[in-house]
């Protein structure tokens, strides 16, 4: 078994320990919610993603491979579910329409300095989902390049390429909005 601090809890869950499941839920509810919220912006969608992720974790726990880290697994589910929702949105309406909608203030925008937070999230939403995912994993759940590669199932080289490009796109967008300039 690896040195993943969650491994013991996962094992206990497999043996029917509900408290262990609740502990994992307590540990990951917030990061998963924030991943989904940053990926999707919509709090209701983010809430749905959290529920889907944890129910899926429960259902698939017996398939978890202890060679991997639990967070890699659960973050990957969260990213994939978020992208599925984004794909669903894009089938319903062109993604570029998203910026024209009259969004209500999201929890993120209420927490952040309003203008900067809103502009930052709008800029993140302007990125393609693959770029958005690396920004979210790096800056909002503090994953290394290698960890992002494991979560996303892509080579580390690709992670770096996407991250650097995503940052440049974000910076250009924010600077055009008068925010984030050096």
């Amino acid at each position: 078994m690896n040195k993943d601090p969650d491994a013991r809890l996962v094992l206990a869950c497999r043996n029917g320990d509900r408290v262990a499941y609740e502990t994992l839920l307590g540990r990951y509810e917030r990061p998963i919610y924030n991943i989904a919220l940053r990926m999707l912006r919509n709090p209701e969608d983010a809430r749905d993603v959290v529920q889907i992720v944890f129910v899926r974790v429960f259902e698939k726990l017996h398939q978890f491979d202890f060679e991997h880290k639990f967070y890699s697994w659960i973050y990957r589910i969260a990213i994939n579910e978020s992208i599925d929702i984004l794909n669903g949105r894009s089938r319903e309406a062109p993604l570029e329409d998203e910026g024209d909608l009259a969004f209500e203030r999201t929890p993120l925008e209420e927490c952040d300095d309003a203008e900067r937070g809103g502009a930052l999230q709008a800029a993140i939403m302007s990125l393609a989902p693959d770029y958005r995912a690396v920004i979210v994993l790096r800056h909002f759940v503090d994953r290394s390049y290698q960890e992002m590669a494991e979560i996303l199932g892509i080579p580390e080289k690709t992670v770096k390429s996407r991250l650097f490009t995503a940052r440049q796109l974000l910076r250009d967008r924010l600077e055009a909005d008068g925010i984030g300039g050096a």
Binding site: N34, L108, D112, L120, L174
Partner: peptide, 15 residues
């Protein structure tokens, strides 16, 4: 500057 802005963004409480 960009990365400081990103890293300084507040996380949201789950509902």
């Amino acid at each position: 500057t960009l990365c400081e802005l990103l890293d300084g963004a507040t996380s949201a409480d789950p509902p």
